[in-house]
Simulated scan of single mutants.
Amino acid sequence: MPGPSGGLIHHVELWVDDLVAAEEQWAPVMLALGCAPFQSWQAGRSWRLGDCYLVLEQSPALRPGGHDRLRAGLNHVAVHGSRAVVGAALAAGWTLRVDTGDTAHLVDRQGFELEVVCA
C-alpha cells in the first residue's frame, strides 16, 4: 500500500454553526501560521500549508447543538506555531484557556480549541 505523499494528515474539516464568525477568528490564525487561502464556496472556506489543509464548513446537514470539545469527538487541534500566532488568535477574539509558556490553548466563540505549540 502506498504511503502518504506529504505527511500523515491530508485535511481536517470542522463543521461550524456560524461560518462568518468562524472565518473571522480562524482566518487570522491560519494566515499567521503561514497558510494560504485554498478554497472558498458558499458554505465553506479552507486554508492550506503544503499538502495539508483546514476546512471550515457550515453544512446544511449539520445537526443542531453546537460543538462540545468535552463530548466524544474532536477535543482540539494542535499546531506548531509561535507567540505571534497566539497574538493573532487573541486579537481575533479567541479566549486563552491555558498558557504553559511552551503551549497555548485557545478557544473560539463556537467552542473549538486550538493548541499552539510554541517550543
Rank of each mutant, 00 (worst) to 15 (best):
M1E: 10
M1G: 14
P4E: 07
P4I: 02
S5V: 09
G7I: 06
I9S: 01
H10E: 10
L14Y: 10
V16Y: 00
E23K: 02
Q25D: 08
A27R: 15
V29Y: 03
M30K: 03
L31M: 11
L33T: 02
F38T: 00
S40N: 09
S40C: 10
W41N: 06
W41L: 10
R45H: 04
R45E: 04
R45F: 01
G50M: 08
G50I: 06
D51S: 09
Y53W: 14
V55H: 00
E57P: 01
S59I: 04
S59Q: 06
S59D: 14
P60Y: 07
R63W: 12
G66Y: 10
H67A: 15
D68C: 14
R69W: 12
R71Q: 15
A72V: 13
A72R: 15
N75E: 15
H76I: 12
V77N: 13
A78K: 08
V85Y: 01
V86Y: 01
G87E: 15
A92C: 07
G93P: 04
T95I: 05
L96W: 03
D99N: 10
D102G: 13
T103D: 13
A104P: 02
D108K: 00
R109E: 13
F112Y: 15
F112V: 03
E113C: 04
E113Y: 01
E113G: 02
L114A: 02
V116N: 01
C118I: 14
